[in-house]
């Protein structure tokens, strides 16, 4: 009985399928990645919104962590375009982009308009105190990274021993070289990788809520600056020769795609070439998504409707 039951059910399902199988317009389908930081997701969704609402495209999003996996997926044709890449965090330029000496399997399309900056930050209450929460200023003269040495006792953690603790770049693969930077600048701090971005922001938020002093790596634009009142701890200006004992360069973010997709969808490329978001625009949406925990699509749709002139200028 069992096998007949199953077979009959399967038959039914199949016949339903023949009746109601969806008709999709071939050729106007795109796959975009949903990367693992909210900024990139927001940038992608603004592009997706225009494609779906004003260019008759169907867009499928695929969730996956950014980095080599996505590049390989684009090269293999699983994904069409990458909406926002931060050049200083990955070897994409030298490996894939022809103009930088790569093999040409990926092609740069245009900037996203986002100018990223990375650095070290500490809560304002560490420097100025916060009388409303009863927190004393533990490091009133903290301006540069070197100043950290005189306050290192306040920043100790279990695992840092006598040194101060820096909540460093969360993932080893981002090649931030925080420990080397600390050592190179003569700062007696231990760089602690939290392992994932999730853990990184969770640790910062938990410490902030309890009013504990900490120094942490972060980048703008990011929701954390809307959620917490942070002050930058200055690093010496970027100098390629001194890396990593120097600040990060400014990150001019850009979009890219595979040569095949670019050839196949010229009007999408024309739109991507015009599409720009400013840091402030992106940060506003990131805030709604991450701090107010709202649905990304809802936030993006709301923003697009309120900023018609912006997206009209993107249309090819």
């Amino acid at each position: 009985m069992k096998s007949t039951f199953k077979a009959a059910l399967a038959a039914i399902i199949m016949s339903v399928g023949l009746v109601s199988s969806p008709t999709a317009e071939a050729g106007k389908r795109l796959v975009l990645p949903d990367l693992d930081w909210t900024g990139a997701i927001v940038t992608c969704r603004t592009i997706q919104w225009v494609l779906e609402n004003h260019m008759d495209y169907k867009v499928k999003t695929v969730s996956m962590p950014g980095g080599p996996g996505v590049w390989e997926a684009i090269r293999a044709g699983d994904i069409d375009f990458y909406c926002e890449t931060w050049p200083s965090y990955n070897p994409i330029k030298s490996e894939y982009l022809e103009e930088y000496g790569g093999d040409g399997s990926l092609v740069r399309i245009a900037d996203t308009g986002i100018i990223g900056a990375s650095g070290y930050f500490t809560p304002r209450y560490v420097i100025e105190g916060d009388s409303s929460r009863g927190i004393e200023a533990v490091a009133p003269d903290l301006k540069t990274v070197q100043d950290l040495n005189q306050y290192k006792g306040h920043f100790k953690s279990l695992e840092s021993g006598d040194k101060g603790n820096l909540i460093a770049c969360p993932e080893v693969a981002w090649l931030c070289e925080d420990q080397e930077r600390m050592d190179g600048l003569g700062v007696d701090f231990h760089a602690q990788n939290m392992g994932s971005e999730t853990a990184h922001w969770a640790e910062m938020q938990a410490k902030y809520k309890r009013g504990e002093p900490f120094v942490a790596y972060a980048w703008t634009p990011h929701w954390i600056f809307a959620a917490l009142d942070l002050v930058e701890v200055e690093l010496p200006d970027y100098d390629e020769a001194k890396w990593p004992a120097t600040n990060w360069p400014k990150d001019i973010c850009f979009k890219f795609g595979s040569p095949a997709s670019i050839e196949k969808h010229p009007e999408v490329v024309a739109m991507l070439e015009k599409h720009r978001l400013t840091n402030a625009q992106q940060a506003g949406m990131i805030y709604e998504v991450d701090v107010n925990k709202r649905d990304v699509d809802e936030v993006v749709a709301e923003w697009m409707e309120a900023n018609e002139t912006v997206w009209r200028s993107w249309l090819p």
């Binding site: 953690s157 695992e159 909540i167 602690q192 999730t198 990184h200 640790e203 938990a206």
Partner: peptide, 10 residues
């Protein structure tokens, strides 16, 4: 996430 928020990282 709850574990890290309550116990920190490491």
């Amino acid at each position: 996430v709850p574990v890290i928020m309550l116990f920190g990282g490491g």
